[in-house]
Simulated scan of single mutants.
Amino acid sequence: MVVGILPVPLADEPLSDALAYLDNLGVNAVEFGCGGYPGKDYINRTSLLDDSDAQANLCATLEAYDMAVRALATHNNPLHPGEERAERGDCELREAFAFPITRREHYHMFFRIAR
């Protein structure tokens, strides 16, 4: 069974500490916030999209704890009646979709940026 969480309550901790804590609890998957209401404490989608070193570091950290990424959360509203808020929500959602996720045997997330 895969047990996953949205680690927003652990956002004050460094990613490696949060993953170690979750691993010790038996959690083996996370849903990272990458904008909108969950914030972007562990995944800053705008900088991560263009930084292959940061992508590699994130993947190595996830692998160290045998942790999978099951989803990227934005929890915003691109259909909001307020134009500015709707545009921000649309942008965050589109950038979250720009992370191609490839599944392997252990369902780790790997970034392959194809632009």
Rank of each mutant, 00 (worst) to 15 (best):
V2R: 14
E84F: 07
D41E: 01
H108Y: 13
I113E: 07
D50K: 11
N57I: 04
D50C: 04
P100Y: 01
R104P: 10
E105D: 14
A71K: 01
C59V: 09
N24C: 07
P38D: 04
A11T: 06
I101G: 06
A18G: 09
D23W: 11
R112N: 13
A11D: 10
Q55F: 08
R112E: 13
G36K: 00
M1I: 11
P7R: 07
A114H: 08
C91D: 14
D23V: 01
R94C: 09
D51L: 08
R85N: 07
N57M: 10
R104C: 13
E63P: 09
A29P: 00
L58F: 15
N57L: 10
N57E: 14
H108A: 10
A60N: 15
D41F: 02
S52Y: 11
P81V: 03
C59A: 14
M109I: 06
C91Q: 12
Y65P: 03
G36H: 00
A18P: 02
G33F: 03
L58M: 15
D41H: 05
L48K: 01
P9A: 12
A64L: 11
L10V: 05
A73S: 15
A60P: 07
L6I: 08
V3C: 09
A18L: 07
P38Q: 01
G89F: 06
E84T: 01
H106V: 05
L72V: 09
Y37V: 11
L48S: 00
C34I: 04
A60H: 15
I113R: 12
T74G: 08
D23N: 15
Q55C: 14
F110L: 13
A68P: 00
L10F: 15
A11S: 15
F97P: 00
A54L: 15
N28V: 03
C91K: 15
E83S: 12
F32S: 04
E95H: 15
G89I: 03
F111M: 14
P7L: 08
D23Q: 14
L49G: 00
A114G: 08
L58H: 13
R94F: 10
A68G: 06
D90L: 07
E31F: 01
A71I: 00
C59H: 14
A64Q: 15
